[in-house]
Amino acid sequence: GSVVKEKKEKALIEVRPYVEYYNELKALVSKISSSVNDLEEAIVVLREEEKKASEPFKTDIRILLDFLES
Rank of each mutant, 00 (worst) to 15 (best):
G1F: 00
S2H: 10
S2Y: 00
V3I: 12
V3Y: 00
V4K: 05
V4M: 11
V4A: 12
V4H: 09
K5G: 11
E6R: 05
E6A: 11
E6T: 08
K7A: 15
K8C: 15
K8P: 14
E9R: 05
E9D: 12
E9P: 03
A11G: 04
L12E: 01
L12D: 02
L12S: 01
I13V: 08
I13E: 15
I13K: 13
I13F: 02
E14I: 05
E14G: 06
E14K: 07
V15K: 04
R16D: 14
R16E: 15
P17A: 10
P17H: 13
P17M: 06
Y18L: 15
V19L: 05
V19P: 14
E20N: 06
E20W: 03
N23W: 11
N23V: 14
N23H: 10
E24D: 09
E24R: 04
L25H: 00
L25M: 01
L25I: 03
K26M: 14
K26L: 15
A27W: 05
A27S: 11
A27Q: 10
A27P: 00
A27H: 08
L28Y: 01
V29W: 15
S30H: 13
S30T: 14
S30C: 14
K31Y: 08
I32V: 12
I32K: 02
S33Q: 05
S33V: 14
S35R: 11
S35P: 04
V36Y: 05
N37E: 08
D38G: 09
D38W: 15
L39I: 09
L39A: 06
L39W: 14
L39N: 05
E40V: 08
A42T: 13
A42H: 05
A42M: 15
I43H: 02
V44E: 12
V44D: 09
V45N: 10
V45S: 12
V45Q: 14
L46S: 00
L46C: 02
L46G: 01
L46F: 04
R47V: 06
R47I: 11
E48I: 09
E48F: 06
E48T: 07
E48M: 08
E49P: 00
K51M: 11
K51W: 10
K52E: 07
A53N: 07
A53F: 07
S54P: 09
E55V: 07
P56I: 04
F57V: 02
F57R: 01
K58D: 02
K58I: 03
T59Y: 04
D60I: 15
I61D: 00
I61C: 01
R62E: 02
R62C: 10
R62V: 04
R62K: 12
I63R: 03
I63L: 06
I63F: 06
L64C: 02
L64I: 04
L65G: 04
L65E: 00
L65V: 12
D66P: 01
D66I: 10
F67N: 08
L68K: 00
L68H: 01
E69C: 09
E69I: 10
S70F: 09
